[in-house]
């Protein structure tokens, strides 16, 4: 959340200069540091919603209902190569070897054959789009077919996407795939069609242990910010500086 200090006036000035200078291409040259902050409105405007998401790894039991419900709600192809959300099963044995698996994204459940004494640590990690504020995927899109909405959700315009797959390459978290029928990039929309109507996301709706939470990061008294205040939450791959808005409680260093 350390990305809120974007100076409004400076950006506006640059935008105007760019228009005068004959196109926004100039903007990225004039201010290369602005290159990663695209489209989204200033999240510092506290009166507006800015969506964030929390996953509590301690609570996840790996039932895979989230991955299943997501595929149903969003018409994601059923084959095991297309997921908007999936659950990973980590097993770290006493020698420090890390074993990760996610058969069919966890939809069919997991088996743990090892005994407690053979295992150093084992847990489940649900994965999904991080809805980064400085999204590498939005940055690389050639035509503006993927973007950050004013309330901080990264969406894909399936009528405009040309299917070049650069965004799939740019996403460090493997959250994008090419929809086999639509031939465009596809990913988690944070159930934008639901949250805009006051409902919660499909994955949160079906989660039996409330391991998943969505909320407004601008609402300082809201449950999400409170949770972040009271728990040691981390984001995935922080060194890549994507300003991820998906926070994990009890995240282990082995998780990548």
């Amino acid at each position: 959340m350390g990305t809120k200090g974007v100076k409004n006036s400076r950006r506006d000035f640059l935008k105007k200069t760019a228009i005068v200078g004959g196109g926004t291409i100039a903007a990225s040259l004039l201010n290369p540091f602005d290159a990663v902050l695209i489209a989204s409105e200033d999240p510092g405007d506290k009166s507006k919603v800015w969506w964030g998401y929390v996953i509590d790894i301690d609570k996840c039991i790996g039932c895979g209902r989230c991955a299943n419900a997501c595929k149903t709600e969003n018409d994601v192809p059923k084959e095991p190569f297309f997921f908007r959300t999936w659950v990973e099963h980590y097993t770290i044995n006493n020698d420090g070897d890390v074993h990760v698996e996610s058969p069919n994204g966890g939809i069919d459940g997991f088996e743990q054959t090892l005994d407690k004494d053979d295992v150093f640590k084992t847990f489940f990690v649900p994965k999904m789009c991080n809805h980064c504020h400085k999204s590498p995927c939005v940055q690389v899109c050639q035509v503006g077919a993927t973007y950050d909405t004013p309330d901080g959700v990264v969406l894909v315009d399936d009528k405009y996407c040309i299917g070049c797959r650069y965004c799939v390459q740019a996403c460090p978290y493997g959250c994008r795939y090419i929809h086999p029928e639509k031939k465009v990039a596809d990913k988690c929309t944070l159930c934008y069609h639901r949250i805009s109507k006051g409902k919660t996301t499909a994955c949160i709706e079906v989660c039996p242990t409330s391991a998943r939470m969505i909320g407004n990061l601008n609402d300082e008294k809201g449950p999400l910010v409170k949770f972040l205040k009271n728990h040691n939450c981390l984001v995935l791959k922080p060194h890549l500086n994507t300003a991820s808005k998906l926070f994990y409680n009890s995240l282990n260093a082995e998780v990548r």
Partner: peptide, 18 residues
Amino acid sequence: GHYRYSSIAEVQNIDMKY
């Protein structure tokens, strides 16, 4: 921003199932 603004509404209007 550099995108089709009406696509936001298109995503919002997708039918729910749950």
